[in-house]
Design a protein around this nucleic acid. Structure first.
Lengths: 341, 341
DNA sequence: ATGAAAGCGCTAACAG
DNA sequence: CTGTTAGCGCTTTCAT
C-alpha cells in the first residue's frame, strides 16, 4: 500500500506538504504541488479516506437505508442518490431493512460511525426512536415527517386529487382506495386527500385497508372489489394495481372495460403492462438527489441551519387502465365521458 | 463521541482491556468483561470501525459495483449481497457506473482504500484493466470470466438450450436471437449456446445484434423481426422481450399467436406482463450471496486459495408468451404441439 | 511555503 | 489476565 509517506520520500518533501497538496492545494507552491502530484500519480497513490476521517471527523460517506431494495420504487431513488453523492465526492452505503424496524435501528447504529449522515427512505421506525438516534448522526428523511429533520416529501396528494377527479370525470360514482400499510406517511396522505377529493367531486369513496404493498396485496383485494359495485380503484402503488388487475381478470372482469384502476409510482412494470397503467408519478430520482443535498447541507451546517422541507410534485399520468364508467347495476346510464361534475 | 477511552476510564481499566473486550473477549476475565460491557452499553459506546481498520488493515466493508441499479436485473442481487454481507458483519458500498467503463475504474480506485474487497457485477471493464486493478484490492466477479478471480456465473447456456428446444418443439423452424451488447459474457454465452442448440434441434437461427439491453432495444428490433418469417425469438433479457412484444403488437402481430417470444431474467415486469413472459430464470439472489461468500473467502485467504468458480443453474420457465408455430408463409402446416424432433 | 510534532480511535506485540 | 507502548495514514496546529 502506497502511503503519503512514500510520496513524501519520493518527492523529497515532508509528509505534511503532501497532505496539503491534496487537502489544501493553495497552500503549496505550484512547483512543489506539480512535482508531488506527478510522483503521486506515478506511484499510484490514493489518499486513505478512513485515515483522513480519523483526524477530520469527516468520513465522506453516507448511509442510505431503504425498506426493500427489490421494490421497484426504490432503485431509481438509490441510483439518483448514489450518483448525486458521488458528484459531491461522497460514497454511499446502501442497506436494506427488510421492512423491519429493529433491523433499521441496528443498521443506523452500526453505520453511524462510518458516515457523515444517514438518508432514511420511507422509514418504518417510530418518530420517537428517530428523534433519539438523531443525536448520533445527522439524518434526512424521505416520505416521512419528522419534526426538525431535513425532509423530502413526494406530494402524493396532488396526484391523488387529480386521480379522483379523473375517475369522477369518467363517470365513476363509487370508487375504492386500496390503501397500503398504515403508519406510512404516503398511505396516510393518500387516505386524507382521497377522502377530501371524493367529497368535493361528489363521489362515494370506500377505503379498503390495509393491503400488502405488493402484487399479492392487489390480487387478494380483487375479491373485495369485484361485484361490490365500485368501478374505479386507486391503489397504494403500481404493484398493487397490477395485482388487482390480474385478480379482476381472473374473475372475468376487464380493465378498463369494467373497472378503472390507477396505481402510484410510475414504475417500470406499470409502464410495460397491458393495459398500460394509469398512474401517479413519484419523482423518486429527484427525491434522491434532493435528499442527498439536504442531508449534506445539514451535515455541513452542524445543528445550525433550519431543517429544510422540500415538497416534490406528483402528477397523474393517464394511460390505458382507466376509462368511462360502465354502471354495473341497473343504475342510470350516463353519457360516456365527463358525466359528473 | 464516546470512545474506547471513555469506557476505560468509567470502568477503571486500561484502554487495551476495553479493546480486547470487543475484539478478543476470551482474553479478558468474565468479571472485567461484563463490567466493561455494561459500562459501554450505558455510555452508548460503539467501536469506530474506521479507526479499527487503520490498525488491522480490515475495514469490514465491501464494494458492490453494478452497471445500472435501475435495471431490474440488479436489485435482487444487490439486496441479497447486502444481506449476506451484513450476516458476515460487513457493510457494503453500492455504486452505479452508468454502464461506463471509465466510471467503473474510477470507482474501484476510490473505493478500494475503504473496502476489503470489491464485487464486480457484469463488469464493462476489460479483463486487462481488471487484472491490473486486482493488485490493489481483492475482487469477485459475477457473470464474467476473469482468469484467477473468484467468479459466479449464471449459466445461461442451460436455459438457452432449453429455450431453443422449447421453440423447436412447438414447431418453430426459423428463430431469432436478439443479442445484447457485445463484450458481455452473458451475450457471448447466449450466442454460442443458441447457435449450437439450433443446429442440434435442426432449426434456423438468425442473430440480430447488438441491441440495447432495454425495452427500447426490443421495440426497435420489432421492425427486423416482423415479416421476416421468423416465428420464435429469444431475447437478451426480459426488457428487450417486453419491448419487442410491444413493437410487434404495434405492427398488428400477436404474441404468442403469431410469434413466440422468450426473455431472460425472470424479472418482475415479465412476471406481471400480459402475456406472462416465458423466460429463463437468472438466480440473481443466489449469485449475490454466493459472490459475497467467495469474495470474503478470497479476502481471508490472502492470495493463498485457488480462485473458486461457481456456476449457478438457469432454467426455462414456460409461461404465456410462447406457443405453437403458425407458418407465416405457405410452408407445410405442422400439427400443433411438438412437431419437430 | 514548508517542516516538526502531536494526535484522531483503535489494535497488537510485549511485559509483567 | 492486564497494563505499557508504539503506530496505522492522515491532518493540523505551531514554528520556521
Amino acid at each position: 500500500m502506497v502511503t503519503i509517506r512514500d510520496v513524501a520520500q519520493a518527492s523529497g518533501v515532508h509528509v505534511s506538504t503532501v497532505s496539503r497538496t491534496f487537502s489544501a492545494p493553495h497552500l503549496v507552491s505550484a512547483e512543489t504541488r506539480n512535482r508531488v502530484l506527478a510522483v503521486a500519480e506515478g506511484l499510484g497513490y490514493r489518499p486513505n479516506r478512513a485515515a483522513r476521517a480519523l483526524t477530520t471527523g469527516r468520513t465522506h460517506n453516507l448511509g442510505l437505508i431503504v425498506a426493500d431494495i427489490a421494490n421497484p420504487f426504490f432503485p431509481p431513488l438509490i441510483k439518483a442518490a448514489q450518483a448525486q453523492a458521488r458528484e459531491r465526492d461522497y460514497h454511499v452505503f446502501v442497506a436494506d431493512t427488510d421492512e423491519n424496524p429493529l433491523m433499521e435501528q441496528e443498521l443506523i447504529e452500526t453505520l453511524c460511525k462510518q458516515v457523515d449522515g444517514v438518508l432514511l427512505c420511507s422509514p418504518r421506525l417510530s418518530n420517537r426512536v428517530i428523534e433519539r438516534l438523531r443525536a448520533q448522526v445527522p439524518f434526512a428523511v424521505v416520505n416521512r415527517r419528522v419534526k426538525g429533520l431535513p425532509t423530502v416529501l413526494m406530494d402524493v396528494g396532488q396526484g391523488v386529487r387529480a386521480a379522483v377527479e379523473h375517475l369522477a370525470g369518467l363517470g365513476h360514482r363509487r370508487i375504492a382506495l386500496l390503501s397500503g400499510p398504515s403508519g406510512s406517511w404516503t398511505s396516510e396522505e393518500m387516505h386524507a386527500t382521497a377522502t377530501d377529493a371524493a367529497v368535493e367531486a361528489g363521489v362515494d369513496l370506500t377505503v379498503l385497508r390495509p393491503n400488502e404493498p405488493t402484487e399479492q396485496g392487489g390480487l387478494a383485494a380483487a375479491a373485495a372489489v369485484a361485484g361490490s359495485g365500485m368501478t374505479g380503484v386507486l391503489c397504494h402503488n403500481d404493484l398493487v394495481a397490477l395485482g388487482l388487475i390480474e385478480g379482476l381478470r381472473g374473475r372475468g372482469l376487464d380493465v378498463p372495460g369494467d373497472l378503472s384502476v390507477i396505481g402510484v409510482d410510475d414504475s417500470l412494470p406499470g409502464r410495460l403492462n397491458r393495459p398500460k397503467l394509469t398512474t401517479i408519478t413519484m419523482p423518486t430520482a429527484a427525491a434522491g438527489r434532493m435528499a442527498v443535498d439536504l442531508l449534506l447541507a445539514a451535515v455541513n451546517a452542524g445543528d445550525a441551519g433550519t431543517a429544510a422541507l422540500a415538497r416534490l410534485e406528483t402528477t397523474l399520468i393517464v394511460r390505458e387502465s382507466t376509462g368511462p364508467a360502465v354502471p354495473a347495476a341497473p343504475a342510470a346510464r350516463l353519457p360516456a365521458g365527463r358525466a359528473v361534475r
